[in-house]
Design a protein around this nucleic acid. Structure first.
Length: 204
DNA sequence: GAGGAGATCGTCT
DNA sequence: GACGATCTCCTCT
């Protein structure tokens, strides 16, 4: 990888829709305790805003969502459906909740480790179809990088210290498409899901 | 390829 | 006590 740099906190302290678009093409990095890396390029995001009925923050702070009310640039990881974790990045500013859900990655490095974490048997020469199974979907993404609420909620993403962070390697993302968000029942008309146009690694 | 059911439990009402 | 910012597996075409 060439000259990749951490995104500063100012990158995150903006409108969630702006951050959601800006995160497309950036690298999500997991460095595990053995110093091995799992890296994927972000190809799909969703924005959740203040006053947004679909956002976990809508009804005010609770133990579960309190990270959304804190400063920008932290991970908000929640547990849902009794079995899945999903990862958000906090944005906006303190007291004004906003978050971006990371929905899909294009695997870049550590593919074998991702498959192991997902308990998927990869053939010697995996096809794009196999690689799509690794991190195309918010719960798949979290599982591929071993992201859990217990380990990663409220972790600072602008530092490499915790082993989970986001890098800008200078990649220039192509055209971005905005669509309605997935899997929600409120504010379904808002087109706050963003993805790289024609990218095969977006979720379905 | 499309569509639907079931899994499974933390969180909030 | 109801409901998820989901995924997988199974059936049918």
């Amino acid at each position: 990888m060439n000259r990749a740099s951490l995104l500063p906190q100012g990158f995150y302290a903006r409108d969630a829709r702006t951050v959601a678009r800006a995160l497309l093409g950036k690298l999500l990095v997991r460095r595990d305790p053995r110093g091995r890396f799992r890296i994927g390029r972000i190809v799909e995001t969703e924005a959740y805003l203040e006053g947004d009925p679909a956002a976990h923050s809508y009804r005010g702070p609770t133990p579960r969502n309190q990270v959304m009310f804190g400063p920008a640039g932290y991970a908000y990881v929640y547990f849902t459906y009794g079995m899945h974790y999903c990862m958000n990045v906090t944005c906006e500013r303190e007291g004004k909740p906003g978050a971006v859900l990371l929905r899909a990655l294009r695997p870049v490095e550590g593919i074998v480790a991702m498959a192991a974490a997902r308990e998927i048997a990869l053939p010697e020469s995996p096809t794009e179809k196999h690689l799509r199974m690794l991190a195309s979907g918010p719960a798949r993404l979290a599982e591929a990088l071993s992201i859990t609420r217990e380990r990663d909620n409220a972790c600072l993403l602008t530092s490499e210290e915790h082993g989970l962070y986001i890098l800008d390697d200078g990649y220039s993302a192509g055209p971005i498409v905005a669509t309605p968000r997935i899997g929600i029942s409120k504010a379904v008309e808002k087109k706050w899901r963003y993805l790289l146009k024609n990218d095969p690694f977006v979720s379905k």
